[in-house]
């Protein structure tokens, strides 16, 4: 039987269009709770996987855009409980979903219940930016038992020994943070390509690049250097301007 983790890996390796898998980031419940399921459905048609952000009051690794969307979502009353309930009632999506959350909201929900309930509503894995490998023992075990992916992040300053270990331990794909800094910064394509090549060399899992990827030209430039790209802040800004999220995602890949 295929696990959610292996289904996620497969989805990244076989993009619907073009040569790079597109993984949009959405802050759950942004811009509003009422239409969010509809937005998720529409985006899932265009996306190869979706990173669904759990809003947190103190998002240490995020730039101003995602801080802002998190504040709006929290003011809208979004919680882990609401997100899992929304996924349960939203119906099947056209792309696998991974939850991106800082650790504390997950601890408050309870890790054991979280993994069980997330698996029940079709979540494929977790990205937790403030849970480095050394602190992740309990969650890693729970994810392994449930067949969910615990996606590891690597960065340009991760040492080569550590890079090898994190790539080996990552489930579904490896999240290669392109820059030292927070989400939504600027990208230096030359430097990033060399770094991604270094990650891909030691990783048996597909590599997805995230942070600073905003438009089609960025996606094109990374073709051949990563199996997938994560687009977050630029999409959140578009949603904030009232644009159509699905069209934004569609436009990231040339037909």
């Amino acid at each position: 039987m295929k696990t959610p983790s292996s289904l996620l890996e497969h989805a990244i390796r076989s993009p619907k269009r073009g040569n790079v898998a597109i993984m949009p980031y959405l802050t759950a419940g942004y811009p509003n709770k009422e239409d969010f399921c509809e937005l998720l459905q529409a985006v899932s048609v265009e996306a190869d996987a979706i990173e669904l952000g759990v809003p947190f009051s103190d998002p240490m690794a995020d730039g101003a855009t995602i801080q802002g969307s998190s504040e709006v979502a929290l003011a809208n009353g979004v919680s882990v409980r609401w997100i899992l309930g929304m996924l349960a009632s939203c119906g099947p999506l056209q792309a696998p979903v991974v939850l991106m959350s800082y650790l504390n909201p997950l601890l408050a929900y309870g890790l054991r219940n979280l993994v069980r309930d997330a698996a029940d509503v079709g979540v494929h894995g977790f990205i937790i930016p403030d849970l480095p490998d050394e602190e992740g023992e309990q969650l890693d075990q729970l994810c392994e038992d449930a067949g969910l992916a615990r996606i590891q992040l690597v960065t340009p300053v991760t040492s080569s020994d550590r890079l090898r270990r994190l790539c080996h331990r990552s489930g579904g794909f490896v999240y290669a943070v392109t820059v030292t800094g927070t989400t939504g910064g600027k990208l230096d394509i030359g430097q990033v390509s060399a770094y991604l090549d270094r990650v891909r060399k030691v990783s048996s899992k597909p590599v997805c690049a995230g942070f600073g990827i905003a438009e089609r030209s960025d996606v094109q430039a990374l073709e051949g250097h990563a199996e997938g790209v994560i687009v977050g802040s630029a999409l959140i800004r578009a949603l904030g301007r009232g644009e159509d999220g699905a069209l934004f995602v569609r436009a990231l890949v040339q037909d």
């Binding site: 240490m60 690794a61 650790l103 930016p129 403030d130 849970l131 480095p132 050394e134 602190e135 590891q152 992040l153 690597v154 960065t155 300053v157 991760t158 040492s159 550590r162 994190l166 943070v177 030292t180 800094g181």
Partner: peptide
Amino acid sequence: GRYVPETLVG
């Protein structure tokens, strides 16, 4: 413990 982004671990 040490609950930080990977960028800060090193």
